[in-house]
Nucleic acid binder design. Structure first.
Lengths: 255, 255
DNA sequence: CAGTGGTCTAGACCACGCT
DNA sequence: GCGTGGTCTAGACCACTGG
């Protein structure tokens, strides 16, 4: 029944099994030369087998060091709730809800923020109903966990929202009650969109990612009380560094 | 400044650029032999370059046919809202909210359902507070879009919830008002968890996935009015076939 | 500096698709 | 049947990591 597997697939399957059964407690795999000898094949064939597992993101290799089993321990992240009742902002010393989340999980947050005025990417322009040719304000946040770049969070604002508000303030500012409320546009509704895709080459370089890293992208469009879009936040992170948590309560239920 | 790139990286970068600039309107790339000649390298070097782009999920190859630019067009999916006010269930002919979503986007839904009693996976047992050694009921749904397996949705129920309820009915049943309400355990709260990871080997075989496909996993724990967990739904889909949409309304705002 | 993975060559044969 | 990618060999040299 089984249609005679190729050598590389046999080797890949064998190694996959060993990994699953915990045969490599240190995470370290045998060297390519050792595997050549064990399976009696040319080095390129061993490499092909290891490439199969690399594409599955099961292992990573580093020049000089060997192959290791990849680990997968995403941090939990809760996108902020509606700002006027966000109590986590009060955590002392924590810049914002994200920093509080990270701190609570025993890690060290840091973020770099810059503000600029740009032509919006196509998706953002559609979400914000930006007229053709009009610019938007973007606050770009690079969020580090334990010194490692773990998340990109870009917030886009229409000019009529951002102008003359604290949104334009560069740097990592914390505004009691929230940025949008301070700008005079508290949000009444969010529309979230979550997708998964592979990291681009540019992202892999910027974030120093292992080859074959999936990304999770969370896009939140915020609407004001008149149901006009006033902000789009695009949060991008490698799947092995971020997990999204969301809560829903049935408003019809008395609690 | 540039530290003398390898041949495979130069070729990969060149092809990446061409793809981005739309140099291959049909999506079809030149053959390996053509690229050997153009870049004056051995075939294995061309293959290494193409492997770089394959790992980025930019291209796919098929034996006999050549390399093609991969496309990425996920379908939108909204996890159901609280059931007693789910009006989309009334769409005629649509089995459930998922089927309605797919139909609305111009595609053909179909699903296969089976019910069984199993030992829960570790994560599910933790979410459901299942005592050690106790079994749970699982309804496994395989959801097809236009005949292609696009999503796996497994719902887990504690025995005390499922017993004697329509949950145990095999097949693709539709219950007006919702399964949980019919079982006597309407849900008052959801806790959602969303992550991104690479497809496992088993998933790739089952769903006939291209190599290097990221998966999106949505886990929803439902709680009853007494805040006991009564259901866990684990929805798994390839990132290029599914995008999750969620809506939030500030309950404090009068609308 | 010994051992590791990364790059590269120049072949050969095979399995599959397309027309 | 011709052209495509997939598998495999047997080498060589290089770049990096680690003790």
């Amino acid at each position: 029944m089984t249609p005679a597997q190729s050598a590389q697939d046999r080797i890949a399957a064998a190694l996959r099994d060993r990994i699953r059964q915990g045969a490599y407690p240190t995470g370290r795999l045998p060297s390519e030369r050792d595997l050549m000898e064990e399976f009696r094949v040319a080095r390129n064939t061993v490499r092909a087998a290891l490439d199969v597992l690399t594409r599955e993101a099961l292992i990573v290799s580093r020049r000089g060091a060997g192959y290791r089993v990849r680990d997968y321990e995403p941090l939990d992240w809760r996108p902020g709730t509606f700002e006027h009742r966000a109590s986590r902002l009060d955590v002392p010393g924590a810049g914002d809800a994200w920093a509080a989340d990270v701190t609570a999980q025993g890690h060290e947050p840091r973020q770099e923020v810059d503000v600029s005025i740009v032509a919006p990417p196509a998706g953002v322009a559609a979400d914000l109903l930006t007229p053709d040719g009009e610019l938007v304000v973007v606050r770009r946040r690079r969020r580090f966990v334990d010194g490692e770049l773990a998340q990109l969070a870009d917030s886009y604002y229409p000019l009529w929202v951002a102008e003359g508000s604290p949104i334009m303030t560069p740097g990592d500012v914390t505004i009691p009650g929230g940025l949008m409320a301070a700008a005079g546009h508290p949000q009444a509704r969010f529309a979230d969109r979550i997708e998964s895709r592979m990291a681009t080459h540019a992202e892999a370089v910027l974030m120093n990612l292992d080859p074959v890293t999936p990304m999770i992208v969370h896009t939140r469009v915020g609407f004001d009380v008149d149901d006009r879009p006033v902000r789009v936040i695009v949060t991008t992170a490698p799947g092995d560094r971020l997990r999204i948590l969301l809560d829903f309560v049935d408003p019809a239920v008395t609690r």
